[in-house]
Amino acid sequence: MNTKLRTRSMGLAALALTASMGLAACGSEDDTTSASDETTSSASPSESMSESPMESESAEPASDAPFGPGCSGVPTDPSDPGSVEGMAQDPVATAASNNPLLKTLTAAVKEAGLVDTLNSTDNLTVFAPTDDAFAAIPKKDLNALLADKEALTKVLTHHVIGERLSPEDVAGEHETLAGDMLTVDGSGEDFTIGDASVVCGNVQTANATVYVVDQVLMPQM
């Protein structure tokens, strides 16, 4: 009788030990799963943070893009020859003729016979007065200037520098194609030439960099 009881007790003990080990194994799997979930969860913010600087960089404007309030008057359709993209395909006199801000300048360049000179010369910087800039000149004086080819040529070439100047290099004193000097003040996206201001700068054409200005720059005659 004692032998049967002993055998039964040993069997129950073995069963209890087996059950205990099974529960421990389950607990170990749960802990591993939980730790894995925590690792994945903690990695997500890090991965998100690593993506943020890239997104921030892509949102920054290109450093070689045109700038200034006057650029809003330039066509935005890339297929338009007067757009920034369109102007980049043509030499400067042709590019200016397609820009709606520069119709009077285009007429003056033709009147002075400078179209071929400007289109065929490499690496220029052109300060291009808007139509409003020419309109600010008394009509009588503007008509007299347009009728005097020599004076008109001097005024127009006073707006042209014989090297291509980026926004980082445009400030300073530069010799013009008229043979005189032009002083540009400012930095960044804020430049002036005397009382004139650059209203749309760093516009690229095939052979020149254009800075559209709000006044006609008059040389000493």
Rank of each mutant, 00 (worst) to 15 (best):
E29A: 12
F191N: 08
T104A: 11
A88Y: 11
A206P: 02
C71H: 03
V184L: 10
A93E: 02
G73Y: 03
T32Y: 09
P53N: 12
I137G: 04
D190P: 08
G73H: 03
R6N: 14
S46N: 12
T176D: 09
S187E: 13
D195R: 11
L102Q: 01
G86F: 08
A178F: 08
F127V: 05
V198W: 00
E29V: 15
S44Y: 13
A24M: 14
T153H: 03
C71S: 10
A13V: 04
S41W: 06
S58I: 10
E150W: 12
N98R: 10
K103I: 07
G188E: 08
A19H: 10
A206K: 09
G162H: 03
A196L: 06
T3I: 12
T130M: 06
S28P: 10
D190Y: 02
S9V: 15
T125V: 06
P138C: 04
Q220A: 14
L124G: 07
D132L: 05
F191H: 04
V170N: 05
L15V: 14
I193H: 04
S34I: 03
N99D: 14
I161A: 09
Q215R: 13
G27P: 01
E168D: 15
V160C: 06
A14G: 14
V92R: 00
M181W: 09
G194M: 08
S72N: 14
F67T: 11
P45H: 09
T106H: 07
T205M: 01
T157R: 08
C71P: 00
M221G: 07
F191M: 12
D37F: 05
A107S: 15
D131Q: 04
L102K: 06
T18A: 14
V115E: 03
D185L: 11
N98E: 15
D185V: 08
V74K: 02
G82Q: 02
L165M: 07
N207C: 11
N119R: 06
S187L: 06
S20E: 11
N119S: 11
S28T: 09
G11N: 07
G68K: 01
G201H: 01
S52P: 01
E189M: 14
K139H: 01
S41C: 05
T32D: 15
C26E: 13
E163R: 12
L102E: 03
D116G: 05
D185R: 13
A135P: 03
D116S: 13
D195M: 09
S56E: 11
S20C: 14
A178L: 11
D214F: 00
N98T: 00
